[in-house]
């Protein structure tokens, strides 16, 4: 193993930290003795062969940076497409309908259940401190600031993100994107820009809807073991939520929408060949956008904490 490392030219040694190279080297020891017997020219050929193998090694670091770079480039292209004339307004409206209207039911039910569960689980803890009256305030702040945006975004990553990944992936596999390109239509503008923008605008609306139903659910939850007037409940709830709670929540929701749109479209648009790629695109769109939603949330909380 050490011998082979000596065979690699000096600059190539920098590639060694990439994860995965160890596996490549592991495969080589049986050939070590043969390399000793090689002529200078053959040795050079082997070296360049090995260099190629090192370069081709799918190290995790390399994959991470190449994927991050590709997503950054894709985001840049999307932003450029959004601001280039003419804007595909009809397709944008259609996508708003697809993303917004068709997710209402799921987001609404989830929001209501979140409200009920949060209330039922928080009540005993607050009761222990004699602060049961604070239940509406606590639920409202939790829902508006964090739970509403994050849960809605995660649900939409599953529903909308995977849909985009699968749809664009299948369009790629069946050459529909290429057909669009030769029809003098820019797929980045028609397919990607409209979807990303629609997701960016629709997710915040869905978050507001989920928050509203979450509060209604919470009121129902309160009334399981009590009798609280809805007006009283909402006046208590809104007393604790001020404008500064809404701003970070809305900003976060816009960012979550953009993340879902970009990752869903990116995964679909860059899908490989064959039907298997469609599944992979849909799956990886959900996984990556969910992860990025959590990371974005972390960053947004830190930033708004400093700014506001």
């Amino acid at each position: 193993m050490e011998y082979i490392a000596r065979q690699i030219p000096f600059p190539t040694l920098y590639s060694l930290p990439f994860i995965g190279i160890a596996f490549e080297i592991e495969e080589y020891p049986p050939e070590t003795e043969n390399i000793v017997m090689l002529t200078k020219q053959e040795n050079a050929e082997k070296e360049s062969e090995l260099e190629e193998k090192v370069a081709d090694t799918p190290g995790a670091t390399r994959i991470f940076f190449s994927e991050a770079g590709a997503i950054a480039i894709f985001t840049g292209q999307t932003v450029r497409s959004i601001f280039s004339f003419p804007f595909e307004f009809r397709e944008f409206i259609k996508q708003c309908y697809m993303i917004g209207n068709r997710s209402f039911g799921l987001v609404g039910v989830t929001g209501a259940i979140m409200g009920i569960v949060l209330t039922i689980q928080s009540r005993p803890v607050l009761a222990d401190f004699g602060a049961e009256a604070m239940l509406p305030q606590m639920v409202a702040v939790s829902l508006v600031r964090e739970i509403g945006p994050v849960i809605t975004a995660l649900i939409c990553a599953g529903k909308v993100g995977s849909g985009m990944g699968a749809e664009l992936g299948s369009m790629k596999v069946t050459e529909q994107i290429e057909a669009m390109e030769v029809s003098a239509t820019m797929p980045m503008k028609y397919l990607v820009a409209t979807r990303v923008l629609a997701a960016t605008f629709m997710i915040p609306l869905l978050v507001i809807f989920a928050d509203t139903l979450g509060l209604l659910g919470s009121w129902l939850g309160v009334n399981i073991k009590g009798d609280v007037n809805i007006v009283l409940f909402f006046s208590h709830a809104f007393a604790s939520v001020d404008f500064m709670d809404l701003i970070p929540s809305l900003v976060k929701s816009f960012l979550f929408g953009a993340v879902i749109g970009i990752i869903g479209c990116y995964k679909g648009y860059t899908a490989g060949k064959g039907t298997e790629s469609v599944g992979i695109a849909a799956n990886s769109a959900v996984v990556l956008s969910s992860l990025l939603i959590i990371i974005t949330d972390l960053i947004a909380v830190q930033v708004t904490d400093i700014l506001l």
Binding site: T174, E178, A179, V182, S183, T185
Partner: peptide, 26 residues
């Protein structure tokens, strides 16, 4: 590209559109 017609191997019809919309699109 407006002067070039391309018939793809799979046909590449837009799945989400009717035949009429497919024809009107280009």
């Amino acid at each position: 590209r407006k002067k070039i017609g391309f018939l793809f191997q799979s046909g590449a019809l837009y799945d989400s559109m009717t035949v009429k919309d497919n024809l009107e699109f280009p």
